[in-house]
Amino acid sequence: MSHRNARLTVHGRRLLVERVSSGRPVAHVAAEMGISRVTAHKWMRRWRAEGEQGLHDRSSRPRTTPHRTATAVEARVCRLRQDRKLGPARLGPVLGLPASTVHRILVRHGLNRLAFMDRPTGQLIRRYERDRPGELIHIDVKKLGRIPDGGGHKTLGRQAGRATRGQMGFDFVHSAVDDRSRLAYSEIHRDEKVATCAGFLTRAAAFFHAHGITRIERVLTDNAWAYRKGLAWKQALAEIGATGKLTRIYRPQTNGKVERFNRTLLDEWAYLRPFASNHERTEALTDFLHAYNYHRCHTALGGQPPITRVNNPAGQYT
């Protein structure tokens, strides 16, 4: 993802490179894209040195933080928080620290909300996560309107796109996410019928197996008919040796990891830019999944991509 205040997305930087590489002056391209010549030269320089990877943001985290609170003091803040359940305003005077500093320390260690902790023991319990890859796979389907050739309303404008909107039908994006590693697999289909769901599960299991998750123990889905009653779905579960689980009715949070993945899918693939056709959007899915699994930093994994958790199943990221 781009930094919050970045003028150009990665796609915009690619356009910058393409236009300058075609022979146009950097100053002219920078002006039409609304950035300074210094910024344009910076991205061109990074692209020449690193290629495609150079167009992605680098971490802005400082190499050293000399004024950060000492580790021993942070440990004492966390210990008092867990033992006495006090907030920053009361911990600050006890420790001789500003309440704002105590709050930052608690946020850093995930202790800023009492609801995140087990009251009797003070242990952090908010992060629900399975112990090993393959123990639980989350599956869900996201429905997307198909894009007519030439583009839809995002390309042509809302009025021009309105005429074709109801004639294209829908794509159904089937996705599977491993609970432990967040490794993800998606396919696009024209429906969410039992046979389609069963076939997707079989191919998803093969994908996870090829990436080191050799056994799937349980599969969690919502209460759609295909998952509750479908014989082909039950047969597919039996073939991969997994048990099917259903979420609580009207409680999509139970399947939260794949629901959150669906949001990322929309933000970073389906709605990333205006696509000129449905085929173009479909083709872009493969690149997104590769970037998500191998390169995109995941906040729940300490800034590491999902494949690192598969390669290091016992790894703990904070």
Rank of each mutant, 00 (worst) to 15 (best):
T286P: 02
V258N: 12
G166Q: 08
E280I: 05
T264C: 03
G122Q: 08
H67P: 01
T71Q: 10
L106E: 11
K154I: 11
S277Y: 04
Q82M: 14
G230D: 05
M168C: 09
R68I: 07
A163G: 07
A205S: 02
H153G: 03
D118S: 03
E135R: 07
A242E: 03
T65V: 08
R309Y: 08
R165N: 00
T65E: 15
R108H: 11
E32L: 10
L144A: 06
L220A: 02
A176T: 04
V94Y: 08
H298V: 08
P88K: 11
A89H: 14
A176S: 08
L55A: 03
R158M: 02
H211V: 00
R158K: 03
N255I: 00
S100P: 02
D83M: 15
M1E: 13
A160V: 12
H109S: 10
R63T: 14
K85G: 04
S277F: 10
L246T: 02
H138I: 00
I213D: 10
A300L: 12
D222M: 01
P98R: 13
Y294R: 14
R76N: 09
L220P: 02
G241C: 01
A176K: 01
K85Y: 12
E18Y: 10
V141C: 04
C297P: 15
H3D: 09
A89D: 15
I35E: 05
N5Y: 15
T196K: 07
M33H: 02
R4A: 15
Q167T: 14
A206Y: 04
E18C: 12
Y128A: 13
T65S: 11
A195P: 04
I137M: 11
T71P: 03
K142D: 05
R127V: 09
G150P: 07
D267E: 14
A238N: 12
G110F: 08
G166H: 13
L91R: 07
G303S: 07
G230C: 07
A27D: 10
D57G: 05
H209K: 15
D140V: 00
P98N: 14
R79D: 15
